[in-house]
Write a protein that binds this DNA or RNA. Structure first.
Lengths: 349, 349
DNA sequence: CTGTTAGCGCATTCAG
DNA sequence: CTGAATGCGCTAACAG
């Protein structure tokens, strides 16, 4: 019977390679080579080994193997918000690519908390993942970068790109699509804008905001100062700001949310005020929702190629394992803008 | 320079316990004991070790440690649909509880594919996770159960409960809330029902369907045979069925979807037919969507305590590690029914 | 074509 | 209070 607190998963019963070798009348190395197909083994010897494996229902111990080869065939991924659809898709992408390479995924959720992020990095590094994919938390600590830079584990920063950091990185184009979006709205007749940018310590968001500012500045048609809701972190605080902007006599006619959560908050404010889209206000968002077709009217959405981001991240790790290059690469994937009814031509009252 | 295909994460530079011991002028065992606080060490000896650790920025190798102790301080979780909100919340719950216990999470997504599920189980078992949490795929293979039964790794089946299987299990109450929901709709004046149950190989769905059948049968007010859309797997097929039912002269006045994806399909059919809720048809769903407040009208939803399911799963593993009981426990958590506008009182035309 | 051997980095007896 | 020695299960030289 197991003693209290014992968590051994049956180390007592588990058959090892030695047992198999004994049963097959061969050496452990032959068994190993049969299992891994790593050198030629005579057909009947091979069969004896296979039989012995079958008979003992032997399973490799990935731990011992990893230790010996000093590689774990696993990659770690740390996300700041596992729940959001964009991140969920990234996980899918990573998982897809990883599975194809026979790699296991270790998932950690920093929940946008710097301390949890640090501890996740430490844990995964201790587990000697072969590569690490990280979407840094907004308030990510310098210690994390230090740890990652010193170490020899290949790292890919995903989604949130930092130009001054020497890592492989992959994220979406943010400034340009925002520009296109604003121009689209201007073409539709809008002159007064609001952008909900949220926590601009997140590069994704600050880039989108920057794109917004540039687009507004570049457009001589737009005279009105836009409403910019940025650096607010608490959703309730953001909600208040949006509501306030809706009460303004110079109420913006077009609202742009820079992310899923921000979009939800903005729409909540619309609902609270009984405003409808696009009759009362135009609306567009980055990232968007799951099941977008269920929203009526359909929402114009700048959609991140999140799945591809995930796949690309693994690709970058692979390149580094293969020693293809010693330089660090930053990959920017284009976004797709889905123009829908929520930004349809605005008719001035 | 790394050779091609080399994936060693710097095993060359990594400091080991030996190096620390040398630097501190003590034995490796003392270092080990200092790190793990596993026996008393003289204050200054201890300090010397701590300094050496600091100086070398030594980090434990979780692999070697795990091998030696034959436990990995990790748990695996295999889900059939990582993307759905209910499963996402379960992951959160598991992650929350796991983190609190200092456990790492290995995540695998079977994507409702039996082969992927099997291979995920094999992989996680080989990695010697201390416990495994599994939401079985619809077409899960017997081999999976065999593997899990034979092995000594504690297993918890989550969400999808199988009464004839000897594992710890945790899921939600399904029959009773469906009953309550149907009664609620009957009270609101409905007599003709449709239920979208999807793939009833999934116990969650078959239980909900069973609850539905019982509720209908128990109600003498309901004479009309309900429309039951079950055993369809392909969403497009389901969509067709729903559309067809909407065209019927005896069109149901109340639709109940048994899960998020099914709900999306049903709503899509409503939109396609230009029907509005609850004016034209009442609607309610199990599991529901993220950001439910954004749906207008608000949808009556039977909400699974998904986060708690995840936490409970870890709890069950813990009990097993502690050898609290040798019997297998099935925990059923109650669901919460959120009655909203989509099922409001029906007025007969 | 196959066997022998030496560790991977650590926790843990067993002696002092 | 501390150190020396052993082996977890496996792969990879090396040697036949």
């Amino acid at each position: 019977m197991n003693a209290r607190g014992n968590r051994k998963a049956g180390s007592d019963t588990m058959t090892t390679i030695v047992e198999v070798a004994r049963l097959a009348g061969v050496s452990t190395s032959t068994v190993s080579h049969v299992i891994n197909g790593t050198r030629h083994v005579e057909a009947d010897t091979r069969q004896r080994v296979l039989d012995a494996i079958e008979k003992t229902s032997y399973r490799q111990d990935a731990l011992a193997r990893a230790m010996r080869r000093s590689r774990t065939d696993s990659i770690g991924i740390i996300l700041s918000a596992v729940g959001e659809p964009a991140f969920t898709d990234m996980v899918h992408g990573v998982e897809h690519a990883a599975t194809a390479l026979g790699l296991t995924l270790l998932l950690a959720n920093s929940a946008e908390d710097a301390a949890r992020e640090l501890s996740a990095v430490e844990t995964l590094l201790e587990r000697r993942v072969d590569g690490l994919i990280l979407a840094r938390a907004a308030a990510s600590m310098p210690r994390v970068i230090e740890l990652l830079s010193r170490g020899r584990t290949p790292v890919v920063l995903i989604d949130r790109i930092f130009d001054d950091l020497a890592f492989d990185q992959v994220g979406a184009e943010n400034r340009e699509p925002m520009r296109a979006l604003v121009n689209h709205l201007i073409d539709a007749g809008h002159r007064r804008f609001a952008v909900i940018a949220g926590d601009t310590r997140v590069p994704t968001l600050s880039e989108r905001l920057e794109g917004f500012r540039n687009a507004i500045r570049a457009n001589i048609l737009v005279n009105d100062e836009p409403v910019i809701i940025a650096d607010a972190v608490d959703p309730r605080e953001i909600l208040t700001c949006v509501l306030q902007s809706l009460d303004s006599p110079h109420r913006p006619t077009a609202y742009i949310a820079c992310g899923t959560v921000l979009a939800a908050t903005t729409l909540e404010a619309f609902i609270k005020k009984g405003l409808s889209t696009p009759a009362d206000v135009a609306f567009a968002t980055f990232d968007g929702f799951s099941y977008p077709d269920l929203f009526v009217p359909h929402i114009t959405t700048v959609r991140q190629p999140a799945f591809d981001l995930g796949m690309t991240a693994v690709e970058l790790l692979k390149h580094r394992w293969n020693g293809v290059s010693h330089l660090h690469h930053t990959v920017r994937l284009p976004q797709k803008i889905e123009y829908r009814e929520s930004t349809e031509a605005f008719v001035f009252g």
